[in-house]
Design a protein around this nucleic acid. Structure first.
Lengths: 344, 344
DNA sequence: TTGTACGCGTTATCAT
DNA sequence: ATGATAACGCGTACAA
């Protein structure tokens, strides 16, 4: 029974005009408390809910901030979203969360949403590796890029906040080197992956070179095109394919560009009878919860998602009030030492 | 620059009427290919995007199916959503995905969405433990409940699809008993959790009783109110608090109502120097990916998310075409034997 | 304090 | 094949 009850019906039932009903619904000041109460009762009784489409069409402004997330499965983002939501509500705004498909163009989605609702601001979480400057400018709404990889030439054009993947990756590799490791295998994304996968490889290579270690192509394992690189399964398959039966591995440490990959690799090592960290050390990247509970627990780079979330909303509101110019904030990640690394 | 360009502007620029532009945009048959091409060029040039609110307001029907998910962080749901999306697109429909907050009322969200868009159907994924029949009836749109716990009295009123948590929980407990375990600890949700936590406890108790084992209150560990029960951290804390220093544990197996909880518990056992499965066996519930890669890998009940996803869309379309009555489908879950259990 | 009437941007109807 | 125009449901200026 799709009884399309509208504001007109409510007005008719209450014996008043539609504007009075509208006023009651939107907490307008100029309304008699009694009539308001009467109207709200009828609204309750009939379960009337205003049509959002019609409302968005008429409304001139709203306290809505959109959060566009690319990579919804990332548990890391889930936590950030929770914090951002709290921050937004604390400022008496409403968060409109939208997950954008991996292959979709988030700027396009943002543009459509901007026309549909009257947004005050937008937060892009992840994605945007190949964004065009002009399309972002066209939005006409303040926005902040959070946890996205920036094009070099785009620096200064927008406000963004992220960790420096190259630097953190360098830090982690250097840590392994300082522990005496020289033969450090690397499990990365595919050749064509132009986002974080590439930057983390850069940091790895930089640390090796700085230590005078010649990078060994045979120890740099990239994922196949088409497969999701950031999975345990992928980590397992890559590691398993590199282990020669019965022979000792020709590396003493493994750097996986994601914790998930590291878990898969650890399992493959374990299956081959290789002990961690006694025979081979393993490190990951991201700092997901599991790393603290796995056996052995995982040494990794932990992204400061709490701080990043706070700074993101903070920056957006700053941009919205035109208090600040566009700025790029780089946050430090933390090297978490646990059980999966041994000095040699 | 928020240039609000509308369909009127496009019409003016093209020197034609708005209806012609609308026809071009919506792939109407009655339009000259040349004019259509010309219009689309202008649309491209100006980056015009139709206002969705206005569109939803006017539109009489759409090929949209909404999927409302409660518990977005659940990786289990993420996979199901992907499959459901493919199924929906294969039938030339569009999926509208909405994550509903843990504390929000999903039926209310559904109702608002129904008024806003012209939905053809709705899929509820998770949640709805305390739903009221009348509110669901009021929707006026075909819907299917997937992976939700049903009230007993609501059976037959809607179409739903889920695993039988009591039965699967019973199966898993019986498996432990068959392996010779008699002192089986249970890590569950809080006392007030009326959803799956309670049903899985029922199955556990049923298996014990059937085997003539008196349930030991001291081995049934419920989570504190207020904390998220389904986390590794919670599993760790509960297990750690139950282990007496230096003493052998007074149980030989542990049944955690979720894989995540099991991982936390395993880590706590490991920290106490207790070997798995040699000293204590551990089982989980859900069948998340990590269970195959953890060390040791986790014996668990794997929910058939692929099948469940397919059946869910299948059932929705069946209901939409009024081919079928409301029915409740219970799917069998699979007991996955891995390394965390040992016969004694 | 309340009601009337107009317009938001689009699609559907009807005429051409 | 195309254009003019009436809705869709709501908020709001303006009149009362």
């Amino acid at each position: 029974m799709n009884e399309l009850i509208t504001i007109k019906d409510i007005a008719r039932i209450c014996g008043c005009g539609v504007s009075t009903v509208s006023r009651a619904l939107n907490n307008h000041p100029d309304i008699n408390p009694d009539t308001k109460k009467r109207i709200m009762e009828v609204v309750e009784e009939y379960g009337f809910v205003p049509n959002n489409s019609a409302r968005n069409l008429k409304i001139t402004t709203s306290n809505t901030i959109a959060v566009l997330v690319k990579g919804a499965n990332n548990p890391f983002f889930m936590k950030m979203i929770g914090i951002i939501n709290d921050d937004i509500q604390a400022r008496h705004y409403t968060m409109e969360l939208r997950h954008v498909a991996e292959k979709a163009d988030e700027v396009e989605v943002a543009y459509e949403l901007t026309k549909e609702k009257k947004l005050q601001g937008i937060i892009f979480l992840g994605g945007l590796s190949t964004h065009s400057t002009e399309k972002l400018e066209q939005l006409g709404v303040p926005f902040v890029l959070s946890t996205v990889v920036m094009d070099e030439d785009a620096e200064g054009a927008y406000s963004s906040i992220a960790v420096d993947d190259v630097k953190e990756s360098y830090k982690l590799t250097k840590y392994l080197i300082d522990k005496g490791h020289k033969k450090i295998a690397f499990i990365g994304a595919s050749e064509t992956d132009i986002s974080i996968g590439q930057m983390r490889r850069e940091g790895y290579l930089k640390a090796l070179k700085e230590a005078g270690i010649e990078p060994d192509r045979k120890l740099m394992w990239l994922s196949k095109d088409g497969v999701d690189a950031y999975t345990m399964e992928n980590g397992y398959n890559i590691m398993a394919s590199k282990l020669k039966k019965g022979a000792k591995p020709d590396f003493t440490a493994v750097f996986a560009i994601a914790d998930t990959i590291a878990f898969g690799a650890m399992r493959a090592l374990s299956d081959a009878g290789i002990r961690i960290p006694d025979d081979v050390s393993v490190v990951g990247f991201d700092g997901i919860d599991m790393g603290a509970f796995s056996i052995p627990s995982l040494t990794t780079i932990r992204q400061p998602f709490v701080k990043m979330a706070h700074r993101t909303t903070q920056m957006l509101f700053s941009v919205m009030s035109e208090e600040t110019n566009h700025s790029i904030i780089t946050m430090d990640a933390e090297l978490v030492e646990r059980e999966s690394v041994k000095a040699i």
